[in-house]
Design a protein around this nucleic acid. Sequence first.
DNA 1: GTTGAAATGATAAATATTTTACATTCTAGG
DNA 2: CCTAGAATGTAAAATATTTATCATTTCAAC
Lengths: 225, 225
Amino acid sequence: MLNLLKISTPNFLELLSPAVAEQIIAASVLMKYSDGQLIHTRGSLKPGLSIVHKGAAQVGVNGIDGTFVMVAALGPGECFGEFTLFTELPRTHDISSTGESHIYQLSQTRFDILYQREPSISRALLNTTLTRTHILLEMLDAIRRLPILERTAKVLLSMSYTLGGSNTLQTRQADLAYTLGVTRVSLGKALKELSRLGLIEIGYGKVVIPNHSGLSDWVEQNCGT
Amino acid sequence: MLNLLKISTPNFLELLSPAVAEQIIAASVLMKYSDGQLIHTRGSLKPGLSIVHKGAAQVGVNGIDGTFVMVAALGPGECFGEFTLFTELPRTHDISSTGESHIYQLSQTRFDILYQREPSISRALLNTTLTRTHILLEMLDAIRRLPILERTAKVLLSMSYTLGGSNTLQTRQADLAYTLGVTRVSLGKALKELSRLGLIEIGYGKVVIPNHSGLSDWVEQNCGT
DNA sequence: GTTGAAATGATAAATATTTTACATTCTAGG
DNA sequence: CCTAGAATGTAAAATATTTATCATTTCAAC
């Protein structure tokens, strides 16, 4: 379960006033999906905004060989498919349900009516979208410019900003590896080295960052700018 | 000179009605920059929207070692810095002038007034932004999942969609290599192989796609989904 | 036409990364 | 407290990629 797009992504519904959120919900259809059920398919052109109500949606790409690589897990309040409302572009990802989930589906026409009436919707959407773009740019830059060790440290650091009080990242090495675009073996080596440097602690299904500013300093020193 | 964000990115100003575009221009300050002059610095938090009027802006990252790696070149009508208006995030890139350029700079407060008055601005911004996100996601996915050969073919294909009538991509191998996150040597090998397959023709400072549907078919067959 | 800078082509050695395979550790659920 | 499945640890061989050079080609300016 991973979080490329979840890292500090503002929650769409929470960015809206309760009154506006209520209107959006009222205009939507609440759909229920069972575990693993496909919600949207990569390549599809059917427009519409989706917002997670309960459960979680798994964002990724199904390979021709039956494999599935995950990009993000979206939880309650988070939206997806928004670009189908403003562009003619096909969907980039396959989205399926993790466990049983309830998703609000809002059609293009109903969305357009609300969008025109409530300017705060565009603000919330732009905030969500621009933050995602920002994360993607940072990620892309890290993948292209930085060696695995530095890349790992940098991504762990940015993920840590969303932890609030906690200092523990709940993530499997395999997922983290995919986020970074490397194999689990290579990631393991990087984590081990970061651990040796005293910057992180490796756990079972988690990574602990005991000393946040230490990691932050190291990244600043070693990752340029 | 490269185009990661330029590939089929809708031109912000052209998405607006002439009347609204006029208002935005009227509210802005037109700044002139000489060749190589820094327009914005990575890490800066000062908000404001920038729109290229004349010339071009170079988007990239200055390494600690003095190197500069380019991500995109933005031309007339294209905007940047928009995420500083809607989020608290620091700028991701260094932006400098290529040749002499004229850039409209619009302050946060003036932007907010126009934004509230003209709903079409948010539509144009969302279109631009979401398209960029879309391209970034496709790129990130390609970098993570595909071997260099496939990755190269896919990126060439998506770049070719913006050529209109022409079938020639004006780009140096070195720039293309950076876009793909590989070295020039590796890219050269990939191009040579694609050329051997009859999918492209390699030129000096350019790549020709003589048979668009051939490349398209090959990508479909070899890049999954 | 020459010429020189810019871009591409080509090669081998050095590295980095993946693949493959198996061992070990952890943890939830009986 | 056991145990099976899930996750991590490890190591060697195979592969891919980069680095470092140098030769060759192209093109634009003179």
